[in-house]
Amino acid sequence: MPKLPGLVKGLGVTLNTLVRTTTKGSNTIQYPHEKEAPPIRARGVIALREDNCTSCMLCARSCPDWCIYIEGHKELAPPRRAGGKPRQVNKLDRFDIDYALCMYCGICVEVCPFDALFWSPEYEYSEPHIADLLHDKNKLGEWMETVPEAPALEAGAEKKGKK
């Protein structure tokens, strides 16, 4: 039997693919009309739980491109027990993340000792003006709704405490 020419063999592969895509549908996703669900761990946008933040500045300091801006002040809150001394709490005045600078490394989420920052897989927040990419604490708080539960781990994993 003569050897099949490579050209014909290649055309066979193309024909196979053609038949497969026409009968079983292609892999293309028509983006604005249908959307692919990103995985749970996808790093889309950072959400802020304001109550947990003590403005300790760890995230701002460990950010590789310094895109987190925090300002805060101390306030006296009523004591927990009756008759106690008033407590000193840190109030957050400003918590901005500049997504025009952010490189989505996730170091801030990881270093936060008080569980105030979370990753959300949400990705549709592009803006016509670059200045609008600076999300303030209200906008970052709104992202909290989109934060999913951490995924279950593969068999044999040792469960860790947080995140």
């Binding site: 761990r41 989505y104 995924p151 279950a152 593969e154 994993a157 995140k163």
Partner: peptide, 23 residues
């Protein structure tokens, strides 16, 4: 799915990995 980043995983840490594999 495993690391959270398609192109820039940033998943490796000194002493191990950031997280275990998802189920």
């Amino acid at each position: 799915a495993a690391t959270g980043g398609r192109f820039h995983p940033n998943f490796d840490r000194i002493g191990g990995l950031k997280d275990d594999l998802p189920a």
